[in-house]
Design a protein around this nucleic acid. Structure first.
Lengths: 120, 120
DNA sequence: ACAAGGTACCATATATTGCAAGGTACTATT
DNA sequence: AATAGTACCTTGCAATATATGGTACCTTGT
């Protein structure tokens, strides 16, 4: 197993795993177990997390799913991103970048906006 | 008010606001309202968020507090980071950097570790 | 004197979501 | 037949950001 350190703050992942799944599915159709392996290369994710998440995404119409048999194990449930899912993905990527930059600015004491030119 | 777009994903902030508060307090003592203003320059934060957070940090011994009068308003409750808080801050900063890099790798399809040299 | 608005604090209830723990079932290997 | 790996799923729990509503002080305008 790949397993990045599982000491990683659980809270940090909130909302981000959804983004990660959508990004993966935008590249190619995947099944749940596969996505856990993929994501686990970079950030720790529990298997118990992915299935409720995928269910949510399906309910929200961001993905659809189809079954496919496998030679080495039980049938796999592949997920495919929808147009709505792609839009959501783009939005989340943008929000993530804005957020990560904001945090970075805070950590490095860079106050980007209005530094002396604040008209108020 | 500074107000970064409040459409920013609420979930992204989970755990990060604690990090932000500790970073600010590592620079100088602050009172709650002040921290909301500081943080709001970079990421949206609601006032209702900071006080339960500060209470938690105090309970965990990461900060201490003292009252100070103010000429223009009610007395301010200043918070000061403790040694334990500084350690926690360092740990969170490291975890955040690891996490943010992991997400970035996933978004940009960079598989850093074990690419062909996985002995298993 | 009094109302309004800004400053500054606080508590409670709610929603979201990651995870642990437990379960089912198929296939291949021992 | 037993074990291990693959692959799916559900339930209950824990953590935390926010909305909402509240208290109280100070200044300014009327």
């Amino acid at each position: 197993m790949y397993t990045v350190s599982d000491t990683m703050n659980t809270q940090f992942k909130k909302g981000v795993l959804e983004l990660c799944v959508l990004v993966l599915l935008d590249r190619k159709d995947c099944y749940g177990y596969e996505m856990v392996e993929e994501i686990s290369r970079n950030i720790f994710i529990s298997e118990g997390t992915i299935y409720p998440l995928l269910k949510r995404l399906k309910t929200e119409g961001l993905v659809i799913s189809y079954l496919k048999e496998s030679q080495d194990g039980p049938p796999r449930k592949y997920y495919q991103i929808t147009e709505l899912g792609k839009e959501k993905k783009e939005k989340l990527v943008a929000e993530w970048n804005e957020f990560a930059m904001g945090v970075s600015n805070l950590l490095y004491n860079r106050n980007v906006d209005m530094e002396g030119n604040c008209d108020e």
